[in-house]
Simulated assay, not measured.
Amino acid sequence: MSVEIKHYAAEQLPQIRQHLLDIHVEVRHHDFGLTGPFYDVERFDERLASYASRPGWAAAVGFENGEPVGFCFGVPLGPDTRWWSSMTTPLPEGYTEEDGKRTVALNEIVVRKPWRGRGVAWQIHEAWLSERTEERVTLLVNPAAGAGAVQAVYEAWGYRKAGEQQPFPDSPVFASMTRPVRQG
């Protein structure tokens, strides 16, 4: 299955913000039953605004017949990033050194239920990465999501677990994963 994918920069966020919020609520709350302050739409919108305020933020949104079916977005890690500061696992020397060009963080990837299991998430993910110039991409995944199935999908996409972190006091402990932006 193929969907139409459109790319957006931070200045275009107002065009897609409501789509992102609506999909977040549909998937996180209704499909997965994730509740609590960390998953509230207001908190998601705050994180979205924070990410989009950083240089290099970009999103990819998938559409079928004009209907948004999923999205992903992320931002490069700059020299002042706190991305690696909440690691609970020691990382090799130099692993966390960032300059805004080395690593892009995939902050969110969400696909609506009718489009899951059809390769749409992979398509949106790869379309987003096709526009990136960084060396590697990192993401956080709740190892309990889908009884481990979500992490297994990322592993099938080439991601490898680097360690664990808890970026917010009320967030789950996430597996921190990375892979090269371009896989050869």
Rank of each mutant, 00 (worst) to 15 (best):
W83L: 01
Y154W: 11
S171Q: 14
Q165H: 15
R116Y: 05
P169S: 12
G70Y: 01
A58S: 15
G33R: 04
T88A: 14
K161N: 10
Q166E: 08
R132Y: 01
K6G: 07
E155T: 11
V120Y: 05
G62K: 05
G36H: 09
S85D: 15
D99C: 08
Y51A: 15
A149T: 10
Y39I: 00
I5E: 03
N142E: 13
A52S: 11
V41N: 07
V41Y: 01
M1G: 12
A127E: 13
P180D: 11
N65M: 00
F174Q: 00
D80E: 15
E126Q: 14
S130N: 07
I124L: 01
P76N: 07
E67V: 13
I23P: 02
I23H: 02
A149N: 10
A60W: 03
A145M: 14
I5P: 05
R102I: 06
V181E: 04
E26S: 10
R118W: 00
L91F: 01
P76K: 05
W157T: 08
F73E: 09
V111A: 03
H29V: 04
S53I: 08
W84N: 09
A162I: 01
S85P: 00
G94F: 06
F44W: 06
Y51S: 14
Y159H: 06
M1W: 11
C72K: 03
E134Y: 04
G33D: 05
A9W: 07
V69K: 03
V75K: 02
E64Y: 04
G146D: 12
F71Q: 01
L77F: 08
D31H: 06
Q123R: 02
G33E: 07
G33V: 04
T178N: 02
V75L: 07
R82T: 14
G158W: 07
I5M: 10
G78T: 03
H19Y: 13
L13K: 06
P37W: 11
K6P: 01
V141M: 04
P37T: 13
T96A: 13
T35S: 15
E93V: 13
R17I: 00
P169E: 13
Y154P: 06
V3L: 07
L48M: 07
V173I: 12
G70R: 01
Q18I: 06
L106W: 04
K6Y: 11
V111N: 05
P180A: 12
W84E: 08
E131K: 12
G158R: 07
R160W: 05
W84K: 10
S50D: 15
L13T: 07
V110T: 15
R160Y: 10
Q151Y: 01
E108D: 14
A175D: 10
P68A: 00
K6A: 12
L106T: 02
E11T: 13
E11W: 08
G62V: 03
F168W: 11
E64T: 02
Y95A: 15
K6D: 07
Q18R: 12
T81I: 05
Q166T: 12
E46N: 03
W157Y: 12
E11V: 10
E42V: 06
P114I: 09
A175C: 09
V120F: 06
F63P: 04
P180Y: 03
R17M: 00
N142F: 12
E42G: 02
W157F: 11
A9D: 14
P55K: 10
I16N: 07
E4S: 09
T35V: 14
G56W: 00
V75T: 12
R182M: 08
W57L: 09
V104P: 01
H24F: 12
F44K: 06
P68T: 00
